[in-house]
């Protein structure tokens, strides 16, 4: 649900988590992003930085400059000024990512975890079964059958938190317990209803089942997409995973290595919340691909 009144939750002496609801949908993500934008536009005294995510915005503040109580009133009044998300229309890039599903690298990492940390069902089979899909092939069809919305960046530099835009492709999964100590670079994984790409080898908690050779983070700025930021994505981008075989993976990997890779991205589209909602309304959401 979307709460009638947002919750203002303390995080130690210098953070406030503004929580707008407890589910995942585009509207909540826009509330989180819009509050962060409003804080930046209004240059709120004492706020150091913000971190919006699916259904909340974390505020980092300096209590020497503003008290928790005053910050709460400031946030409440800014939230009151946010317009309806229905009217939002924004430029939205669409990235195509060649992706090997059920690849040998994530399988190796899963096997390593099962051997050393905890026994578990292999991730693709596990997610397929939990979501009532007939087999891993159907899982791949469903997971790759939608565009993903980049709701925010976080966890690790450049890592996109994404949600499936097509409700017929919405999947859910628990996160690892305990988390992994390593995940291969470029791993595609999911936890809760969120899908991500791991920019580099890091610890992790999402179920993992695919890998892409295309970098989403580049401190060397070798490709033009990184001209303004070393992170590829920004909130409001969309991603489509294109299932491919190992030979395509290796081809792209070689192109990335020699600098000849061309990012497959389209930049002419606008995303209209109104049109999107109307389309979702028209769907039979009980169907799966």
């Amino acid at each position: 649900m979307i709460y009638d009144q947002p919750k203002f939750l303390p995080g130690g002496d210098r953070y406030m988590l503004v929580e707008f609801g407890n589910e995942m949908n585009l509207e909540l993500n826009f509330m989180g992003q819009s509050l962060a934008q409003a804080v930046a536009d209004n240059d709120v005294k004492g706020v150091i930085e913000t971190a919006p995510c699916f259904a909340s915005t974390l505020i980092h503040y300096e209590p020497e400059d503003i008290s928790f109580k005053d910050l709460q009133s400031e946030m409440a009044s800014l939230i009151g000024t946010l317009g309806p998300s229905e009217d939002i229309e924004l430029d939205s890039r669409l990235f195509y990512f060649p992706t090997v599903y059920c690849d040998p690298w994530t399988k190796e990492a899963v096997d390593d975890y099962r051997a050393k940390i905890a026994e578990k069902e292999p991730d693709p089979e596990f997610v397929a079964r939990l979501n009532g899909l007939s087999d891993v092939d159907q899982f791949v069809r469903v997971h790759s059958g939608t565009e993903y919305w980049v709701a925010s960046l976080g966890f690790w530099p450049g890592l996109p938190f994404m949600m499936a835009l097509d409700p017929r492709c919405m999947l859910t999964a628990p996160k690892y317990n305990p988390p992994r100590t390593w995940t291969p670079q470029g791993t595609v994984g999911m936890g809760g209803a969120s899908t991500c790409i791991y920019p580099v080898a890091t610890p992790g908690g999402y179920q993992m089942f695919g890998r892409t050779p295309v970098p989403i983070w580049d401190t060397q700025k070798r490709f033009p997409q990184f001209e303004n930021s070393i992170c590829l994505f920004q909130p409001g981008d969309r991603v489509k995973f294109v299932p491919c075989e190992l030979d395509v993976y290796e081809l792209v990997e070689a192109q990335v290595a020699d600098g000849s890779y061309q990012y497959n991205v389209v930049e002419y589209q606008k995303f209209s919340v109104r049109n999107y909602k109307a389309w979702v309304e028209s769907l039979d959401t009980s169907a799966r691909f």
Binding site: A55, T57, A173, N177, G191, G192, S194
Partner: peptide
């Protein structure tokens, strides 16, 4: 996510 400690990703 189904584990008790799981929450929708947040800051």
């Amino acid at each position: 996510g189904s584990e008790p400690s799981n929450i929708i990703d947040q800051g």
